[in-house]
Design a binder for these strands. Structure first.
Length: 543
RNA sequence: GGCUGGGUAGCUCAGUGGUAGAGCAAGCGGCUCAUAAUCGCUAGGUCACAGGUUCGAAUCCUGUCCCAGCUACCA
């Protein structure tokens, strides 16, 4: 068992309210974090927002508010949505946090001291409305080169002096790193893509922008002197830190760099970065090299997930085909929302999702299969045994008990591999087995025979219901990282205590609790049955 | 254009040489403990298309069509 686990999500761009497609990654990471916490592994889970860019400054000006006010408003929306989804970060980091400024600037100083950054020229097509455009994003037309989003605005070819990072110097080290750490980037096909990119040759990239803007001040002047002015402000002539040298560095800021060396030594390197495929290159090539330049270790693993699609199209705010997380929680409840999001989306690739598919999944898996299993189990035990909790049979004497270990192993294996949807699939096959056991054993018939004086039937009834109670306990606990709100409610109906806190910390070791019959010897009383996941008949929300 | 991966039941997908599979959705039946739930059965596929290798191909080879990803500096 690892002695600690540090995981992060990408930080979301704070320019709008969050969509489900953005928070899906955070839900998944939260489940992984809880999975570690509940096992008793000290866990640090970092998520947050990326708040610097000229675009944000422009948007804020358009709305007549300061950039700071603008991002504060957006961050409040993210935090509200994440609270509704029971997201439990150990720190919610903002790139506008004061310690992040120190962190990013320190990284620049270290790269400079190491000889890895130099002043160069960044050239490119510049759209007055959008800034620098990638050469692949501009169109060559008879009227000249234009920006596809603003065809009437002439593009300008601009040259800007700014700082570059010597990524080219890390080509060999990156190749060796990939060779020595075959699990660094997952899934494998993403790793292969990155390997192909490395082999094609790495070029330096720019890490600053000229002029003072809404960003972290670049701490060094062109002559190498500090850009700190006597009054404590930064020389605007030094410019600002650009994009990745700001955003990526949140992962070490969030672990204590550079203010708290002890904390940083405890949590770095990160065990897992969870990111989307659009930013894989920055996390798996730029980021290790940046860290090495500063004398720090590369992260241990980067998981690259796909996108949520609606009818084949990527969900996005600009397309308008996204789901509001608050609508989602209102319809499914926090646990239902987390479950269907993680069960319907294959975490290693793009997945087409729809409101109808979420409803079908909720009704089939939660209302019908699992919710109803708990309900019928608690009802039967209450009716036939007077509410006294029956003990599970020995694993070898029970079809469910003898199947459990294999289910558990497969579920754990998939969780470790970030394939949360497959972990849940494995668990729900066991739910199906439990429902089938009810049909085979027909406890109502056993109860009738027992009432007529058949002692063997009475013993069998207790055993079967004990197995079913145990199955409900185990599934609720194994699914608790995904449905942290539902698990204590299930355990309460079964007459068991739930020892973990709202963030999954503080309880007993989960793996011990997930042994078949772990509490078979303890007497207990079942509570009144109460539907956990009411069946849904609702329509998609308007808009 | 180049490289990689895919196109299998209405939907989402599994299946790398031996008589086509799962879940959901649909139809029929059983049961009654349960949230009209659950259990069983049925139906539904020239496995993108065309050739080839083989006793035998969804699976291997060739070609074609279609889709997706990667092919450097967006936050």
């Amino acid at each position: 068992m690892p002695d600690r686990f540090y995981l992060t999500t990408a930080i979301a761009y704070a320019n709008n309210k969050p969509g489900l497609h953005t928070l899906h990654e955070v839900i998944a990471a939260d489940a992984i974090a809880r999975w570690h916490r509940m096992r008793g592994i000290p866990t640090r889970f970092l998520t947050g927002t990326d708040e610097h860019s000229v675009n944000i400054a422009i948007r804020a000006a358009e709305e007549g508010v300061t950039s700071r006010q603008f991002v504060d408003d957006k961050v409040a929306l993210f935090r509200a949505a994440e609270d509704a989804l029971l997201i439990s970060p150990d720190r919610f980091i903002r790139t506008t946090d004061p310690d992040h400024l120190r962190s990013a600037q320190e990284m620049v100083r270290r790269a400079y001291a190491n000889g890895d950054i130099y002043v160069g020229r960044y050239e490119g097509w510049y759209c007055p409305n959008e800034g620098f455009r990638n050469p692949t994003d501009v169109l060559e037309t008879a009227a000249g080169t234009i920006c596809p989003n603003h065809p009437d605005v002439p593009l300008q070819w601009l040259t800007e002096r700014n700082w570059f990072f010597r990524l080219s110097a890390y080509q060999d080290r990156l190749e060796r790193w990939y060779a020595d750490h075959p699990d660094f980037v997952q899934p494998d096909y993403r790793r292969n893509e990155m390997l192909g990119f490395i082999r094609a040759g790495l070029e330096d990239f720019s890490i600053s922008r000229a002029g003072a803007g809404w960003g972290i001040p670049f701490p060094i002047r062109e002559d190498g002197s500090s850009a700190l002015l006597p009054d404590g402000s930064w020389d605007p002539q030094a410019g600002t830190i650009y994009v990745w040298w700001d955003a990526l560095i949140n992962y070490i800021t969030g672990a204590g760099f550079p203010d708290d060396p002890d904390l940083f030594a405890r949590w770095w390197p990160a065990d897992l970065h969870v990111i989307g495929k659009d930013i894989a290159r920055f996390h798996t090539l730029f980021w290790p090299a940046m860290l090495w330049s500063a004398g720090l270790e590369a992260p241990r693993r980067v998981w690259v997930h796909g996108w949520l699609l609606a009818q084949g199209e990527r969900m996005s705010k600009s397309r308008g085909n996204f789901l509001d997380p608050l609508d989602f929680v209102a319809a499914f409840g926090a646990d239902g929302a987390r479950y269907v999001a993680l069960r319907e989306v294959a975490f290693d690739r793009d997945s087409d999702v729809s409101w109808d598919a979420f409803i079908r999944r909720y009704n089939a898996d939660l209302a019908n299969d699992f919710g109803n299993l708990v309900n019928r189990t608690v009802t039967m035990a209450g009716r036939y045994l007077g509410g006294e909790r029956p003990a599970a049979r020995l694993a070898g004497d029970s079809p469910l008990g003898s199947a459990w270990d294999a289910v558990c192993d497969r579920c754990f294996d998939r969780l470790e591999g970030c394939l949360i949807n497959e972990a849940l699939e494995a668990l729900w096959e066991f739910v199906g087995a439990a429902n089938r056991l009810v049909e085979v054993e027909q406890p109502w018939a056993l109860a009738k025979a027992a009432k007529a004086g058949d002692d063997a039937a009475a013993a069998r009834l207790r055993g079967v219901l004990g197995d079913l109670v145990e199955a409900c306990r185990l599934v609720a606990l194994a699914a608790a990282p995904v449905m942290p709100g539902a698990a204590p409610r299930v355990l309460a109906q079964l007459g068991y205590a739930y020892g973990w806190g709202p963030d999954g910390n503080g309880g007993p070791a989960l793996l011990d609790e997930l042994a078949w019959g772990a509490h078979a010897a303890e007497p207990g009383t079942l509570a009144r049955p109460e539907p956990l996941f009411p069946r849904l008949e609702i329509e998609a929300p308007a808009g």
